[in-house]
């Protein structure tokens, strides 16, 4: 599961930074049919979390109500230089993760 994360490379301590993530996942609703008419099993990313230097700063429960290739944007305070690490898991138990570093000055 590929994903893209966008955060500023650098920030001042205390800045509120925008965090964006886009994950490649069909978010199968369980109501779609394949080419031969079989129902495709529901399979969505049901949990997504973001840790900043090991501390959870954001978490979400998702469902089939979130679009395919889910996009989520939120904010966090730049506290210290370190990594933002995202992890997620879908109904079939497949896990994904992606990280991005930020340099915090001041």
């Amino acid at each position: 599961m590929a994903a893209r994360i966008q955060i500023p490379r650098e920030a001042k301590r205390g800045d509120v930074i925008e965090v964006r993530i886009l994950i490649q996942h069909p978010m199968e609703t369980g109501y779609r049919h394949d080419d031969v008419g079989h129902l495709i099993k529901r399979n969505v990313i049901n949990a997504l979390s973001c840790r900043y230097d090991g501390v959870e700063v954001f978490r979400a429960d998702l469902s089939s109500g979130i679009s395919a290739n889910p996009y989520v944007q939120f904010y966090t305070v730049a506290e210290a230089s370190g990594d933002l690490e995202f992890t997620w898991i879908d109904d079939e138990g497949e896990r994904g993760s992606e990280r991005q570093a930020i340099v915090v000055r001041g």
Binding site: M27, F58, L62, Y71, V72, V77
Partner: peptide, 19 residues
């Protein structure tokens, strides 16, 4: 969906795309 945030968010705003 449910989104869990806290004081470290700095700003209470979520953007996403829904079905």
């Amino acid at each position: 969906a449910n989104f869990y945030l806290g004081p470290r968010a700095g700003k209470a705003e979520i953007n996403s795309r829904v079905r």
